[in-house]
Design a protein around this nucleic acid. Sequence first.
RNA 1: GAAGGUGGACAGAGGAUCGCCGGCGGGCUCUUCGCCCGCGGGAGGAAAGUCCGGGCUCCGUGGGCCAGGGAGGUCGUUAACGACGACCCGAGGCAACUCGAGGGAAAGUGCCGCAGAAAAAACACCGCCGAUGACCGAUGAAUCCCAGCCAGCGAGAGGCGGCUGGGAGGAGGAACAGGCAAGGGUGAAAUCGUGAGGUAAGAGCUUACGCGCGACAGCCGGGUGACCGGCGGCGAGGUAAACCCCUCCCGGAGCAAGUUCAAAUAGGAGCAUCGAUUCGACCGGCCCAGUCGAGAAGCCUUCGGGUUGCCGGUGCUCGGGUUAGAACGCUUGAGCGGGCCAGCAAUGACCCGCCUAGAUGAAUGAUCCUCAUCGUCUGGAAGAAUCCAGGCGAGACAGAACCCGGCUUAUCGUCCACUCGAGGAU
Length: 110
Amino acid sequence: MTGLSRDFRLRKRKDYLRVQGKSDRSQSAHFILLAAKQPGSIEKKARLGITASKKVGNAVARNKVKRGIKEFFRKRREEVLAKDYVIIARRGSELLRSREMNKELDGLFR
RNA sequence: GAAGGUGGACAGAGGAUCGCCGGCGGGCUCUUCGCCCGCGGGAGGAAAGUCCGGGCUCCGUGGGCCAGGGAGGUCGUUAACGACGACCCGAGGCAACUCGAGGGAAAGUGCCGCAGAAAAAACACCGCCGAUGACCGAUGAAUCCCAGCCAGCGAGAGGCGGCUGGGAGGAGGAACAGGCAAGGGUGAAAUCGUGAGGUAAGAGCUUACGCGCGACAGCCGGGUGACCGGCGGCGAGGUAAACCCCUCCCGGAGCAAGUUCAAAUAGGAGCAUCGAUUCGACCGGCCCAGUCGAGAAGCCUUCGGGUUGCCGGUGCUCGGGUUAGAACGCUUGAGCGGGCCAGCAAUGACCCGCCUAGAUGAAUGAUCCUCAUCGUCUGGAAGAAUCCAGGCGAGACAGAACCCGGCUUAUCGUCCACUCGAGGAU
């Protein structure tokens, strides 16, 4: 994935279910942000997972959205609390330009 | 050379910065893990739909018959195909060329709406005939004239029709049986068309010319063949994307296939082999062979079990299940590029060179600059095509997931080759 190595990504279904299970959530017009504490206390890296269903579009559109979000997260990773995050892309997010997307995501993390 | 036809190529280019995936090399580290540096690689023509075909993997095994599914002009090509090539036939087009589920309707069964008399076996609504038989007619037929009557037809008129009476007339009339299928009309389709003969009226009934067919009847020539040409013969409804018949092909599931390892949990079985015996199992059914099983498998179930059926030895050893944990499978392949030969071609043989993504909540990206391309606007040059400068905008369809060969569908645009040819020039 663009701009974000495996260490900073959620890679297992378990992780997704855990974050979706108990988490703080906030949302904007095109995204939903879920955040949860990491299990144990060893890891101190913020990690991200992305969900983009077929509502967002075909495979090309979904890839585009995911890459945009990851690029954003890569740049902000240092500033963010060391939690596990899941961002869910909603319908319409594939039409955003990257600047608009960054602005909206900024708002969510604040 | 307008318009058109066929085939093919490309899918913006270069740079800077920040990143992602995997490979190789080096360094740090005792090693592993990990970190750092360098080098070179990283989506498509359809990667898509998953519609065919194959490789590969496992299951459950070989044969026969049946069932089921698929294919369908011919000959080739191929690993294979429903793909591709060439050709044949039919349809469309002035042509280049395009399109076609393109075997059999005389093996049998079925169906053919509406219209029409009739839709496949012959029938006969209007119509034609009245030869033949019956009927009426010299005790006077048809036809003509005159008069009267009528609840008929008609907007109406003795205009048409019917009836009665009278006159003229002088031998047929009428259409019951029966014959006919020419004409009318219906239809996508009605037993071939036109002329002549023929007849009571008619008819491929006969004949000339034409049209058609491949059943009856074949034969000759050409072609591997589909088929084509000729002579002869004949005159049949269509429908098989209705059942069906014929020929050929087909086991199932799929990389979440499958193999290995690890940890945790449960906790004792598993395998091989010999003999007897009957029963059962072997993925549509049956049969044969073979193999396997004896808490196996099948069936039923309230998920506890029940039921059909029911033996003994010998030897060996670790084995099995679960879990979206990890690794392998995983990219060198019916591969790509070039040459040459064979072939009309699809394609094949040989030689040389090349290595070209391997992710797995799934890498191949983001930002900026420059230059091309196309569209559009403004200004300038010129009569115009066009050229120059500047501004604005556009770049589609779409993301590998085991790998190939096809097909189909989506797609902003650009370019090339061949071909046909309205028209122009000579």
